[in-house]
Design a protein around this nucleic acid. Structure first.
Lengths: 232, 232
DNA sequence: AAGTGGTCTAGACCACGTC
DNA sequence: ACGTGGTCTAGACCACTTT
């Protein structure tokens, strides 16, 4: 019994992690209950609970009532990607940010877009924007906006502020989905990004909603060389 | 004063979120202190604290002692990617998983690899593995392993179990980094993946460590069509 | 039926950062 | 100096799940 006093949840969590990484507690093994650990560490159960809850949130351990807590056998790596607004992405890399609206029209969207937004066929605002870093193409954005969910979007000029930032400021979103993939540049995108047709592109597709109401869906095309990084 | 009793931290968080999304609390605005909110919701400060702490963890609000809590003005979207082991990635998509070790050698690594691992020049285990779904190429993996940090790796056959799974089971890691980008297939990778040279590839680069000790670094090449998805 | 995690409370003290 | 968030405690009750 190594009873110390006033353990912080962080020090408890660090010790629990140490035991897992050292192999003292192997993947799949059950670890002592909260009461027992609280006694060992000389802290309250609340503190142990918080430490374990955070480990569970990180996917390190699994918890079930009555069964107890065990080290996850085959941990799934999780990476939290931070996706800032484009302007910040550019300035963080030391570039001077500008943008240019290539196309702006209201029209009935193709079926694929309505499917992505889970909307019946209707008029949507179609926006194409080229984002530049030091006057060189950085990313091309192809966006569709549900006008009825973004009041005022028809009157915005998007000259001093990009559609991206306008929406973030004016229309909050509660949830959405995002996917990452690679594709080849078609002729029109290649011309805008000043690369050869067929060049590899990093493609980010994103759809956002506010409590079931679709707001916008877009594809962002980054030329080869762009990297999205994170820690594990 | 809408004093109800026994509010759960989840219901409190939901109400806080509603006020933010409804525009009642606008981006950049400061929200009431914990004590005040606890009184309004008729719950303890601990409960309000937990709700606010989770919102802060999600990047929705910013908190600072003495200044208070405010809605983040320009929220940074965060996507948590779950990166399972390759076998699971294949079986989850309904494929039958197999793998084949293409190359296995111990040699002094090129400088770029030593830099990624932050190691002085030394002998490393170089492994190239092709992962297949229903006998068709799914992903090509090019990996370097720090032998001294992975005891037993020299004797592993990697026939029934891939290097990926062997390391996950035998060598725990505490942290690492990961990046995603797009690149063009060179001749050798194109041949292995049975695609044309120059085709776009989705590239994942990953390095893992155990408390400062580099374990392994690898590049994973996915052919066009592969998507990595997540929710916001 | 019983054991384990999940959560809430009321109170307390502390640490940071602004005033 | 003081107000705000950050955290810990001891105790309590509850909910889920297995025995």
């Amino acid at each position: 019994m190594t009873a110390r006093q006033n353990q912080s949840h962080q020090s408890v969590q660090a010790e629990l992690l140490r035991r897992i990484h050292s192999g003292e507690w192997t993947p799949g093994a059950f670890i002592p209950g909260e009461v027992e650990l609280a006694a060992e560490f000389g802290c309250s159960r609340t503190t142990v609970n918080r430490a374990l809850r955070q480990l569970a949130d990180s996917g390190i351990v699994e918890r079930k009532r009555k069964r107890g807590t065990r080290v996850v056998p085959m941990p799934i790596a999780r990476a939290t990607l931070e996706i800032p607004i484009i302007r910040k992405e550019v300035t963080d890399r030391g570039g001077h940010y500008t943008h240019s609206v290539i196309k702006r029209e209201i029209r009935t969207a193709p079926a694929s877009i309505n499917a992505r937004l889970q909307l019946p066929a209707q008029e949507l605002l179609h926006l194409q924007t080229l984002h530049l870093s030091d006057s060189r193409p950085f990313m091309f954005e192809d966006r569709w906006v549900n006008v009825s969910a973004a009041p005022g979007v028809e009157d915005a000029s998007f000259e001093s502020i990009s559609p991206n930032e306008w929406l973030v400021q004016e229309v909050p979103y509660s949830d959405g989905d995002i996917s990452f993939s690679a594709c080849a540049a078609d002729d029109s995108v290649a011309e805008l990004l000043e690369i050869r047709a067929g060049s590899p592109l990093f493609l980010v597709e994103r759809t956002t909603r506010l409590y079931q109401t679709p707001i916008t869906t877009l594809k962002m095309y980054y030329p080869e060389g762009f990297r999205m990084s994170s820690s594990l």
